[in-house]
Nucleic acid binder design. Structure first.
Lengths: 275, 275
DNA sequence: TAGATTGTTAATCGATTAACAATC
DNA sequence: TAGATTGTTAATCGATTAACAATC
């Protein structure tokens, strides 16, 4: 458990990985895992570079697979739990158990961020927390606008899990003038027409669509026109956005329909997978 | 456009597909696509067999890939729109456009259900609707219990998209006695302790967990103990269930974190994918 | 018949996983 | 040193996609 003095990037064998650029000096952070040296909170470590592990040297630095990106938030949650319990290091085995995946997957996923573990020891919880936060872009504040303040919009505006990760609900918007002025979760509902000003003033990058299906595409278009480049769609409708805008969707009823499929399989042919 | 008189299962070449059982007489329905013969509503067609395209002959009839299962609800939604507009047939090209995927994927996905299209013509909208509904198990009523009637539980209880697909919110449950008796979406909130009786009386197969993270596992255990075999988890926590129980999760804040990752990439290295 | 469109093949791509050398 | 655990490899699996023969 001495200081490994790992510079990274210069580790032998790292450049041999197929499909990766032979960049040099990537993933800079130098706080060595394996000792608690930099203090319990990891402030000051690399809060500057919001880059996803990319050195200034090469472009297309280290593509992180989509499936991995989707799991990082899960690891993050587990690590926060560990940190709360003052656990200093964690093995891939244990982290895997908490995240509900297998250990090989954890190691592979984390290896995309850099060589942040210590053989024979595990990963430094605080260090990993900082790295994942950085890669996910959670070290900055993301002002979010919610469009459509019905039941769901209401619930989303009050959802605690957002603010806990740096997503600040900055504005609520609805097309219904009778809702304008109503205060929800401490914020006044404003009219859809004001979206351009709101987006500019608050530098909003992320929009949540919580309207009925019929208005979803129109609202998405307005968001894009207002300069919003990431959209999370809760409306039960397929919407399309121009290249360069990220779109993700959550469809509550689709999830139930998928469960229905497997539930029904179970009834008819009790030889089920899925658990 | 004459009656193809297609029996299916006996189509040449079908059994040659690798990885499939050489079963016979699978996917029985015989209403031929390509003519509107059976009337606009497709009643009486195969409402009996809830099986997912499996004949009584062989087990492990025709495994439908998970990714396909997840897309069937999307096709369903598009087809319902077409049906509303009195469109009789639809090509894979058009359906793909509506669903936001490519045509090859649509054809491959639908081929898992059976050979339900007509070359040179397309798919019969009504026929396909019936088939997808059958495969997904949506021809039956699914009583659902929601556990945790906070903001989110509230919104879910009122969500129109559920009932539209045959998911009937049958009971609302909360651990907080001060909420018991309150009426939400026309249903009285009942106490968590009553879950076993409720599940039995209402033959509940699907449970929705909308509690805080801390109670999620405990609630899941109670649901399983009460005989619920499909669980949709909205709590920001990993929960585990015994084999034989299906579990899906929707994590609102994870979706935002994934958007954050790509948003940040865009800022740092404007060479984005995702659209 | 000519045009349209499916159903299937096969190539390709991306994700998962077990295994193990490296190394703490 | 012995035990533990990572990081990486390579095998495998599953999903996507273009292409095209079959056929309406």
């Amino acid at each position: 458990m001495q200081d490994p003095k790992r510079e990274d990037g210069s580790l032998p064998g790292r450049e041999a990985v197929p499909g990766r650029e032979a960049a040099s000096g990537r993933d800079a952070p130098a706080w060595p895992p394996g000792d608690g040296a930099p203090g319990v909170n990891g402030v000051s470590v690399d809060a500057v570079l919001p880059a996803a592990g990319l050195g200034s040297a090469g472009r297309n630095p280290r593509r992180i697979p989509e499936a991995t990106v989707a799991r990082l938030p899960v690891y993050l949650r587990s690590l926060l739990e560990m940190a709360d319990a003052h656990i200093v290091t964690i093995s891939s085995e244990r982290l895997a158990e908490m995240a509900g995946v297998n250990a090989a997957k954890v190691r592979k996923d984390l290896s995309y961020l850099g060589s942040y573990g210590t053989r024979g020891v595990g990963y430094d919880v605080q260090f990993l927390l900082v790295q994942i936060n950085r890669v996910l872009g959670l070290t900055q504040d993301w002002p979010v606008v919610i469009v459509g303040i019905g039941n769901l919009g209401h619930a989303l505006a009050n959802y605690k899990g957002f603010s806990a990760r740096g997503f600040r609900i900055a504005a609520l918007v609805d097309a219904d003038r009778s809702k304008v002025g109503e205060v929800v979760a401490g914020l006044p509902v404003r009219h859809l027409d004001e979206l351009p000003e709101i987006a500019t003033e608050q530098t909003i990058a992320i929009g949540i669509v919580a309207t009925p299906a019929g208005s979803a595409q129109e609202v998405a278009d307005l968001l894009v026109a207002a300069g919003v480049t990431s959209i999370l769609n809760f409306a039960p409708a397929v919407i399309s956005v121009p290249r360069g805008v990220s779109l993700r969707k959550v469809d509550l009823s689709i999830e139930l329909q998928i469960l229905s499929f497997y539930q029904q399989l179970r009834v008819v042919a009790p030889r089920v997978a899925e658990a």
